[in-house]
Amino acid sequence: MLSDKTDTWVPVALSQDLPTGQAMPARTLAGPIALWRSQSGRLAASADRCPHRGMRLSHGFVRGEALSCIYHGWTYSQAGRCLRIPAHPSLTPPETIRVATRSVEEAGGIVWVADGEPDGKPPLFEGYVPLRSLTVRAGGSALSAATGTKAAVEGFVWRAPGAPAIRLLPVPQETGETLIHVLVPADCGVSERVAASRAAESLRRMAERIEAKEAVP
């Protein structure tokens, strides 16, 4: 595991993609996580594995302030404690049944997760708002080659022909893919946002073409 990375905030999703009462899968370098937002709007992140039978918790369901596993309905609090085992309704689950949780923060419309306890707050990108996230089957070097800019993890600005200058936030995945969050200037209108989305799609095609060529021996 990349231990030097665990105390930093990683942008795993956009706030707009996780409405209240829903769960979704995400990844950090320490593995897959279940990200969920309670009915009252509170965010939580846990290991994407129910300790009972190993089912992915991101397939589960949110009722009120708790996340339940889709397999047997075992229910967990935001702090990861098992609250309920439906097969034994009168049982109070022992404290020892818990799912590992992660630190999670929301800033500027982006959901940040850390495997450890980072000191500061996640960064803000003044003047930009999140547009969409997309996964690219290419690593940082192909992305740098495609944009002509160093694909720095703290983000970089790229201008495609016919589109507004967009800010890209690349997140390397342990699969070799890169999750990219696309941010646009806050004053962009609908047509500029659509153009920025299409520019990001073009960039993905370019980067994947470069990656595929590099992969040829």
């Binding site: 897959p32 994407d48 594995r49 300790p51 009972h52 039978r53 190993g54 089912m55 992915r56 397939h59 889709i70 397999y71 085992i85 097969a87 034994h88 049982l91 049944i97």
Partner: peptide, 23 residues
């Protein structure tokens, strides 16, 4: 759809990896 999403894919035989109840 459940079976294809259990982690790990193999059945853990050592106690500790998963938590059984009376059920």
């Amino acid at each position: 759809s459940i079976l294809e999403n259990q982690i790990p894919r193999l059945l853990p035989l050592d106690p500790g990896m998963e938590i059984p109840t009376r059920a």
